[in-house]
Nucleic acid binder design. Structure first.
Lengths: 200, 200
DNA sequence: CAGGTTGCTGACCGATCGGTCAGTGTAGGC
DNA sequence: GCCTACACTGACCGATCGGTCAGCAACCTG
């Protein structure tokens, strides 16, 4: 009965959202396993019990943290798959996808960098499915090794760029610069992949 | 006095090496924070005390695990910097570097994916320095945003490809296939970066 | 004012964490 | 046979982990 007990659902979300934001930041920077509920509670100015009042468990907190981004990604993919496959629709998709990465960089970082240690979780498996769909949309059954490498490098590279690369770099890039450069580089990476009909 | 108490240094390394290998595998797949000494000991068939007999602490174990790869990387970089900067020497370096990534994929994965949560550790800071040197060698002061993105995507993408990409993919690629494709893709990524004289 | 719900908390739980220490068995040098 | 050194271990330590629970103040509804 914890799921939606609020009669006035719209407003009430403040503390939950606050905790999700702070938890995501911690998860992304120290890892899921490396983050304790106590740390999250301290950073948010609540008690550990309060965190567990809003979220049934640490896993549920992570799930709630990643789910909205996965919803968005699902919509973007649905739209892309629905369009007629063409060079221009692929280019448009790349822009849309990179905007998604920019807006959800920490969530993407979580999935890309910690996905394998969280494989049991539902939201991670869902993300895996989405990425599989994306790969299939871009190049059918992923036939050649080079295509698979192109896809992996583009995805993993963009995620790394957006979340971790600033570690060894001095001045951070603005979002606009990053966006433009990423669009160029990722488009270039994916360009040699021939469009193939989606295996119905 | 733990450092090198053995009169017959050459052979004696078995247990230490075994523990390092197993620990690296665990660290890479579940994260440093997510791996306990007990897990490592169990996987290796030793007791937790035995692990701590060979390595002064969990951190020292990680350090010992990553250091040889950093030594190798340092040598590769020294050789590259010493060569006259030219297109052909850059191409040769890419091949050398990708062979390094293939041979040390778990170590690279550790640095790339968990570097920011381990920033206090000496070996990680050393790795950061090496990457900085590499970046400077490839494109001087890293002037444009696009160059920085190219470099980050190449590095992060290759590391992701080699360690995590097989999570959502069905059949793994052979090392030969991966190597050839990576050389192509990374060379292509770095090609537009103009060679610049190494500062000073 | 009574009664219920909501947001939040401290005390507490068993388990596990990284790490210390006092050993034990054993192999080699004398 | 004795002794040291080495590889290894179980018992144990304080701290912290994720999670439970009873209860408390504030609020709305009647």
């Amino acid at each position: 009965m914890q799921t939606s007990p609020l009669p006035d659902a719209p407003a009430r979300q403040t503390a939950r959202e606050e905790l999700k934001t702070i938890a995501l930041r911690q998860f992304a920077s120290v890892g899921f396993a490396g983050t304790s509920l106590q740390q999250i509670a301290d950073a948010a100015g609540y008690s550990k019990s309060s965190v567990l009042y809003h979220f049934a468990s640490k896993e549920a907190l992570l799930e709630a943290t990643l789910t909205p981004a996965m919803d968005t990604l699902g919509e973007i993919l649905d739209r892309f798959v629905a369009r007629a496959p063409s060079r221009s629709s692929q280019d448009a998709f790349v822009v849309e996808f990179i905007d998604f990465l920019l807006a959800n960089r920490l969530q993407v970082h979580m999935f890309v960098n910690q996905g394998q240690s969280l494989q049991g979780m539902a939201v991670i498996q869902r993300a895996n499915g989405l990425i599989e769909t994306l790969a299939q949309s871009l190049c059918g059954e992923m036939r050649t090794a080079e295509e698979r490498v192109r896809f992996s490098v583009a995805l993993g590279g963009a995620a790394y760029m957006l979340s971790a690369a600033e570690m060894w770099s001095t001045t951070p890039l603005s979002d606009d610069e990053t966006r433009a450069a990423l669009v160029t580089v990722v488009s270039e990476l994916l360009a040699p992949m021939q469009l193939r009909p989606v295996a119905s």
